[in-house]
Computed example of a mutant assay.
Amino acid sequence: MGRPHRVGIVGTGYISGAYLSTLSGHPGVTIAAVADLDTARAASVADGIDGCHALEVEQLLRDERVDTVLNLTTPAAHAPVALGAIGHRKQVYGEKPLAADLTAARSVLDRAAAAGVAVGCAPDTVLGTGVQTARAAVDAGLIGRPLSAVAVMATPGHERWHPNPDFYYRPGGGPLLDMGPYYLSALVHLLGPIVAVTGAASRLRDTRVIGSGPRAGERIGVAVDTHVTGVLHHAGGALSTITTSFDAVRTTAAPIEVHGETGSLAVPDPNYFDGDVRLFELGAGDWRTLGPSAGYLGAARGIGLLDMITSGAPRAGGALALHILDAITSLLRSAESGRRVELTTTAERPAPVPLTPPETWQA
């Protein structure tokens, strides 16, 4: 059995609570240390976890009590923190995107390979029963040969609920970099890697108003496009279309639909771990719901880190995260140039997740 795997968390902001709900108290994991630029916030988090130490970021990255660094910083800090951890021969699992740009993301994987350490990256929502059950249906031939998919994410903007939304509207942010990884990761699980993209983008306004928290009413600048759409060419021949928007109010579209020669699948929101997968077969009279047949049951944020620790070949791994970032940055370049862009990376479809009950992955 051995000792629990020791995790150090860099970044104790909004998303850290979701990870701690999964990891804190898990018998296979110890939260050994936390760090944040807001030292008081880090100290408060550490006080609530037995045996946890609040450290400076550099202290945590070199601390011998830490095996893996969980990187929950803002996108601009993803690569510097990851490289610092790798420099001390620690594994890294980070929030998406892998880095703010493709060059930095490549350097993370190159340095990790040289150091012989693993890199994992969100989203891990695609390891839940929603996307995995849909993937199992595609792989079993329930829709015949896959032809196309449609993915839609529409929201009026995170400033309506997030008390500090600035980074969503700075370089490294925007709807595609923020939310696109969920949908693109799901599409790669379902249809395989992407070889080329064609994109278009727009920006509704140059300022946003914070809607909650102590800064409510404050106006912030927008430096990125806030509505991005595109066509994805998959290696197997399927075509996907994706729309991510911080400008739209609401949509009735399914988060993802996958169409094949003999059927169509409605796939639940990949921002979540579960949800109903519905199948409409050629000649049928209506949709039918498929029961969960694959994926981590009852999963939550952090399951990707647990999967990385236990599997040896992380399903939410660095190579996939690099490929997703390549697709995102290529879509943005295509939107700017008006031309199709060929991707420079590829990634294998991660191994499917067998149906895994909570008592197994929580043990």
Rank of each mutant, 00 (worst) to 15 (best):
Y296F: 14
P314M: 10
P171S: 00
A347M: 13
D225N: 11
G130Q: 02
T22S: 14
V92Q: 01
P352W: 05
L325N: 03
T346H: 10
I324V: 15
A254D: 14
S107K: 12
A85Q: 08
D63M: 04
R340Y: 00
A100P: 01
A266S: 15
L102C: 01
T360A: 15
T226I: 03
A46R: 09
T356P: 03
P255T: 09
L325F: 02
H234D: 09
D274K: 02
E159W: 00
P146Y: 03
L184H: 13
I86F: 03
N164T: 11
P193A: 12
G285M: 08
G338T: 06
I220F: 06
R278A: 11
D67Y: 09
E359C: 04
Q132E: 15
T198Q: 11
A112N: 11
A112F: 07
I256Q: 05
L306W: 09
V131G: 08
G172I: 06
R203S: 12
L23M: 03
G94E: 06
G48E: 07
S311F: 02
G17T: 12
V34W: 06
S293T: 10
P171Y: 00
P156A: 08
A40V: 12
G275I: 00
I242Q: 12
E359N: 13
G28H: 00
L70I: 05
A238V: 13
R205H: 11
R170Q: 15
G236T: 11
A35M: 05
A46V: 09
R349V: 15
D225L: 01
A294S: 09
Y182Q: 09
G51N: 10
T289F: 02
M179G: 06
V197E: 07
V228H: 07
E159G: 02
P97E: 03
L142E: 12
P314V: 06
A42D: 11
L109A: 14
D139M: 08
G28A: 15
L265Y: 14
D36L: 02
G172H: 07
L232P: 11
H227W: 07
R145Q: 13
